[in-house]
Amino acid sequence: MSKYSLDEFLSQTEQEDKGEGLFELETPHLLEVNLNGQIWAKAGSMVAYHGKIKFEREGILEQGLGSMFKKAISGEGASLMKANGQGTLYLADDGKKIIILDLQNESIYVNGNDLLALETTIKHDIKLMKRVSGMLAGGLFNIRCSGTGLIAITSHYEPLTLRVTPGKPIITDPNATVAWSGNLQPEFQTDVSFKTFIGRGSGESIQMRFQGDGFVIVQPYEEVYFQESH
């Protein structure tokens, strides 16, 4: 049989049940959810499903935030949907790499655009980043996930986790920052000379500064969340 035959393609790509539980990585870029009840998923992330599953879109930004922020934040990353029922659900987000994390009474902050799915046992709270004035664009919020259960986050290409230790702060580009440990509170700082040096145009370079004891996950890719301040 030719290695390029249709049968060979089907055997290489056919869905297989790995028996891993609620969340399974069907491929590095495709999450299989073996649904028997309810989960939260990023709005617009459904690729396919079978079984009896109902979807209900719900703006997570409706959790008590002012209309000013609702207006300022837009895009698919701003809302989750409930998937309810029994069946198999496939989720993906622009071909990004998917990471499943099993939280055990732990907490993690995830960039609002990089949270793909979570169990309903996980509490999720919207947190707005400080110093948003003059930087308003699509991704200024993050979501604090805490409790016990599974979450799935996404990264463009292979993520890198950096340890943050006392006396050794980590500085990151907000557009490349995926997630960080729940005990860290990043601060924003600006670096005019750095922005000028790398030739990205006028204005300030916005950076995130993490200090304390924890970790921060970055991706080798800059998603455009912040518009330049002028």
Score class of each variant (00 low, 15 high):
Q86S: 10
Y4P: 02
E56I: 02
Q12M: 04
G85H: 06
E26R: 03
P28T: 07
L30N: 01
M46D: 06
I53Q: 10
E58F: 06
R57T: 11
G19N: 07
L22R: 10
G51H: 09
D17W: 00
G19R: 02
E76F: 06
N36L: 12
V47S: 10
A43E: 13
Q12T: 08
G66I: 07
G64C: 04
A43W: 11
V47G: 02
N36C: 12
E26L: 08
G21R: 04
L35Q: 12
K82H: 13
Q63C: 04
E62F: 09
F69P: 00
E62W: 08
M68Y: 14
Y49E: 12
G66K: 10
T13L: 05
T27V: 01
L10N: 11
G59V: 09
N84R: 11
L6C: 02
I39M: 06
L25S: 05
Y49D: 13
R57F: 07
S67P: 01
K3R: 07
H29R: 11
E76W: 05
S5Q: 05
K18G: 08
G77Y: 07
A48Q: 08
M46G: 01
V33N: 02
E20D: 04
Y49P: 00
I73S: 12
I73K: 12
G85R: 12
G51S: 12
K3L: 14
E26F: 02
L30G: 01
I60C: 04
E24H: 00
G59Y: 12
M68K: 15
K70N: 10
S5R: 05
F9D: 01
E58K: 14
F9W: 08
L31N: 05
Q63W: 05
L25T: 03
S67A: 07
G87R: 11
G64K: 11
T13H: 08
I73D: 06
M68H: 12
F69T: 13
G19V: 00
L31S: 06
S11F: 03
K54Y: 01
E62G: 15
F9V: 11
Q38T: 15
A41E: 09
N34V: 04
A43V: 08
F23N: 03
K42T: 02
D17K: 04
L31W: 05
K18M: 09
R57G: 15
E58W: 04
F69H: 11
K71G: 14
L61E: 08
F55T: 10
K70W: 01
G37R: 09
G64H: 07
N84W: 00
G19S: 07
E56D: 09
L61Y: 13
A41P: 07
E58T: 12
V33Y: 02
N84M: 06
G51Y: 09
K82N: 13
M46T: 15
I39W: 05
F23R: 01
N84D: 10
G21P: 06
S67T: 10
E16Q: 14
G37E: 11
A43C: 04
G19W: 00
G21E: 01
G44M: 13
S67K: 08
K52Q: 14
E24G: 02
K54W: 00
E56L: 08
V33K: 03
I60W: 13
M46Y: 06
M81Y: 04
A83I: 04
K82Y: 07
K42N: 03
T13W: 03
L6S: 09
